[in-house]
Computed example of a mutant assay.
Amino acid sequence: MTLTDLNITIIGAGIGGLAAALALRRRGAQVTVLEQAEAVSEVGAGLQITPNGLSVLRALDLHDELAWCSQRAKAVVLRSHGQGREVLRLDLDQYAADLRYYFVHRADLIRILANAARDAGVQVRLLQKVQRVEWNPKPVVYLANGAQCGGDLVIGADGLHSKARKALNQVGQPFFTGQVAWRAIVPNHAKLPAEAQVFMGPGQHLVAYPLRDGSLVNLVAVQERRAWAEEGWHIKDDPANLRRAFSKFGGQAHGLLSQVDEVALWGLFRHPVASHWHMGAVALLGDAAHPTLPFMAQGGNLALEDAWVLADALEDSSGGIPEALAAYQLRRRDRVVKVVRAASRNAWKYHLRAPLSWPAHQILKLGGQVAPQRMVGQFDWIYRHDVTKSGE
């Protein structure tokens, strides 16, 4: 299908929305992105771009820009929480030398995508709050200011509380996982190298890795608890609460936590993968279709995959938009379900309590000594998946 005369509206100027806008515009479509904020920006958070997401950025000719403003990950290091002793080092340079993993500030990735989209001719409209979406052969987006818009296709890339998802699916009730997470960025006074440091403790863990030129460190601290916490990335908390929760973490972890002067806390909720990713000429991508827990670092990477496959499915279709959207869901849903399940199962490995923690750590250490290649490659089905290659 030729995209040259296609008029597409995308709701949400996040990673998935901007990547889809760029991919579609480069195929000839006329693309407008609606963003409710007053600026296209993201604050105070890091993320990991794994090889599967990087393949999309490379296909969009954005790899070099990403490399300039991020840290290329050299290893993942698992440590015990007490003194930070090393349990297992997964050397990516040695055992995954053909792959690239990056630590990037979310704001930098959004800037790269937004600039590329605008340069390509995408129209980004700010302060556009969406009230509801109607799916039709000619879909309609109703805005809070009373205006309406739409086009030949509407794509909902509007995150956890997606208006587009509500138009296509019954509203499901997410459930609290019994885990909360704090996010913070601190100066890299400890001179942490370009490695992901995972400090494992009973019922909790801390992840730390450097950002930008290495002068900053991104922290994600996860704790199991019964008390419910609100869902959302930008809910402020008192840094003293974070330090109190991780008071038994010593070594570098203690030093990093002592530097936190601003922190956000959010509850981790399980949302079902949407049953319907498309109806009429409305489609979903990213968190709007499949919110995932952060334990495989795949939220942004799956959104990048979605963006590419959606654009590819539209271009490849000979039967119009509904057929293209059906092909898009068929290509994506099974993989996404599998990744979301893997993320949901992954946290417990870092939260073992005595007496299980010591023997489990010894098994990890032995595995790293005896079969390091296997340890590094256990999630190759995620990281080596390349949606930019035909048939993926």
Rank of each mutant, 00 (worst) to 15 (best):
A245P: 00
F246P: 01
K248F: 07
F249T: 08
F249A: 13
F249D: 05
G250H: 12
G251M: 11
Q252I: 13
Q252E: 13
Q252T: 15
G255M: 08
G255Q: 14
L256D: 10
L257R: 06
L257E: 05
Q259S: 10
Q259C: 06
V260K: 01
D261G: 13
E262C: 05
V263A: 04
A264M: 05
A264P: 00
W266T: 04
G267C: 04
L268F: 03
F269Y: 15
F269Q: 14
R270G: 01
H271T: 14
P272L: 14
P272I: 10
A274G: 06
A274E: 09
A274H: 08
S275H: 14
S275Q: 15
W277S: 08
W277I: 14
H278N: 13
H278S: 15
H278Y: 12
M279D: 15
V282M: 09
A283F: 09
L284I: 11
L284K: 01
D287Q: 04
D287Y: 03
A288N: 02
A289K: 06
A289L: 10
H290K: 04
P291Q: 10
L293V: 09
L293T: 12
A297P: 00
G299C: 05
G299P: 00
G300C: 11
L302G: 00
L302R: 01
E305A: 01
D306N: 07
D306C: 10
A307P: 09
A307K: 06
W308G: 03
W308D: 08
S318A: 11
I321L: 06
I321Q: 00
I321A: 03
P322N: 10
P322S: 13
E323K: 13
A324V: 15
A324I: 15
L325I: 08
L325S: 01
L325G: 02
L325Y: 06
L325H: 00
A326K: 14
A326D: 11
